[in-house]
C-alpha cells in the first residue's frame, strides 16, 4: 500500500514539475488535467469537512441533553436551511438562499470579526508593555505606525507619517523580504521532500 502511494505521489509530482518546462501541447494537456484533478480533490476535501461537521453536530445532539441540545440543533438548522434553499431554488441575491446569506450569515461574520477591536484594545492596555528591549522596539514601531497612518496623527506629531512610511518601506521590507526568501526556500525544500516521499502522505506509515 505504502509503495502504491509513493508511486502516485512521485508520478503526479514529477508530471506537475515537468509540465512547467514543456511548452508543447502535450505538456499543456497534462497541466490542464492535473489542475482539474486538484480542484476536484480540494472540492472533495471541503465537502468532507462539511460532512464531518454535520456528523459531529448530530453526535453532539444525541449526546447532550436539555438546553445544550439547542446549539448543535441550530448548527444543523443553519446547514440544512442553506443546503435546501440552495438545491431547491435559485442562488441569486433575491432568492431565499441569497437572503439567508445577506440577512444572517453576512452580519454574523462581519460582527464576529469586528469584536476583535475590543479585545485588541483591552490587550493593548494590559499586555503591550515595555518589558524588554525587543518588546520596546515593537511598541515604538506600533505607536509610530498607528499615529502615522491617520490624518489626525500628523496633526498631533508633525511629520510622523514620513517616519511611519519609512518604517513600512525600509526596515519592514527588509524583515519581510528575509521572511519571504525563507518561505520560498523552505517551501521548495518541503515540496521536493513531498514528491520524493520523505515527507507528507507517502511517508505516513500504517495510518
Amino acid at each position: 500500500m505504502d509503495r502504491r502511494i509513493r508511486i502516485v505521489v512521485l508520478v503526479l509530482g514529477i508530471l506537475a514539475v515537468v509540465q512547467f518546462f514543456v511548452p508543447h501541447a502535450s505538456g499543456r494537456w497534462v497541466h490542464q488535467k492535473l489542475l482539474d484533478w486538484l480542484v476536484i480533490l480540494e472540492s472533495g476535501a471541503l465537502v468532507a469537512g462539511i460532512v464531518a461537521l454535520a456528523r459531529h453536530e448530530v453526535l453532539q445532539f444525541g449526546a447532550s441533553g436539555g438546553r445544550a441540545r439547542i446549539y448543535p440543533l441550530l448548527t444543523l438548522v443553519g446547514l440544512g436551511a442553506m443546503i435546501f434553499s440552495g438545491i431547491l431554488g435559485p442562488i441569486n441575491e433575491r432568492s431565499l438562499f441569497g437572503s439567508l446569506y445577506a440577512w444572517l450569515l453576512q452580519p454574523i461574520q462581519a460582527t464576529m470579526l469586528s469584536l476583535l477591536v475590543f479585545y485588541m484594545a483591552s490587550a493593548a492596555f494590559r499586555s503591550f508593555r515595555l518589558s524588554s528591549a525587543p518588546a520596546t522596539i515593537l511598541l515604538a514601531a506600533a505607536l509610530i505606525v498607528l499615529l502615522g497612518r491617520v490624518p489626525l496623527g500628523e496633526k498631533i506629531v508633525p511629520n510622523i507619517s514620513l517616519f511611519s512610511t519609512w518604517i513600512i518601506r525600509v526596515p519592514n521590507v527588509g524583515a519581510t523580504r528575509g521572511l519571504w526568501i525563507g518561505i520560498g526556500l523552505a517551501g521548495s525544500a518541503t515540496a521536493l521532500r513531498v514528491i520524493l516521499g520523505i515527507q507528507g502522505p507517502a511517508s505516513w506509515k500504517g495510518r
Binding site: 477591536v117 485588541m120 484594545a121 493593548a124 492596555f125 494590559r126 503591550f128 508593555r129 515595555l130 511598541l139 506600533a142 505607536l143 498607528l146 499615529l147 497612518r149 491617520v150 490624518p151 489626525l152 496623527g153 498631533i156
Partner: peptide
C-alpha cells in the same frame, strides 16, 4: 475620522497602560 480617533485611543491605552 472614526479610524483616526480610534487609533488615538489605542495610543492612549498603550501609553496609560505603560
Amino acid at each position: 475620522f472614526a479610524q483616526s480617533l480610534t487609533h488615538m485611543l489605542f495610543v492612549a491605552l498603550i501609553v496609560i497602560g505603560n
